[in-house]
């Protein structure tokens, strides 16, 4: 988890605190959602056991914990790191892959509904930045590749 960008010092305090249980919607209303249990396992180097868990996808990214937290840190950071890890390991919900594919292909998550626009008398939609986005994505991928090669060489 070193590359997760997680701050272990803050996480340690978090493992002892738990103040935001009282306002985290998922902790309050979804059985089995327990970010501190995940955090303790991350600290103990045992995070892999959560990779398959549906719970790491139940953080709503509502940022409530971050705002209330005395360290301005939040349960959320740990859950985001776990999701990234799970996604890299191919353990993500099917919808995530579907959404990503659409995004990578078109730069959007859906096409404007032209029929409905006409019925509603709405103007033609503005042009999307799809072409430019695709260029940007290609450049990014190429940069990333050389970046990894350089890293491997050094």
């Amino acid at each position: 988890m070193e590359e997760s960008g997680l701050n272990f010092d803050l996480l340690k305090k978090c493992a002892d605190c738990g103040a935001c249980y009282d306002l985290c919607p998922s902790s309050l209303h979804i059985e089995g959602y327990d970010p501190r249990a995940v955090i303790k396992d991350i600290l103990a180097g045992d995070f892999e056991k959560w990779t398959d868990s549906e719970h790491i996808w139940q953080c709503l990214e509502c940022h409530h914990c971050v705002e209330i937290c005395f360290q301005h840190y939040g349960f959320e950071n740990a859950m985001t790191a776990m999701r990234k890890y799970a996604t890299r390991s191919g353990k993500h919900p099917i919808q995530v892959k579907r959404g990503w594919d659409m995004f990578a292909k078109t730069g959007r998550l859906g096409e404007p509904n032209l029929g409905a626009r006409k019925r509603l008398n709405l103007p033609e939609p503005a042009e999307s930045g799809e072409e430019e986005f695709k260029k940007l994505f290609a450049i990014y991928k190429a940069d990333k590749k050389t970046g990894t090669e350089e890293k491997n060489e050094s």
Binding site: E61, T80, R83, K84, T87, H92, V96, G99, W100, F103, G107, R108, L109, P123, P125, A126, E127, S128, G129, E130, E132, F133, F137, Y140, K144
Partner: peptide, 21 residues
């Protein structure tokens, strides 16, 4: 209305897959 916008993009989806993008 200006031309050229794409998906914002959605954090919970895109950031999980690739923060750089």
């Amino acid at each position: 209305d200006i031309d050229g916008f794409t998906c914002c993009p959605e954090k919970s989806l895109v950031n999980n897959v690739d923060s750089g993008m």
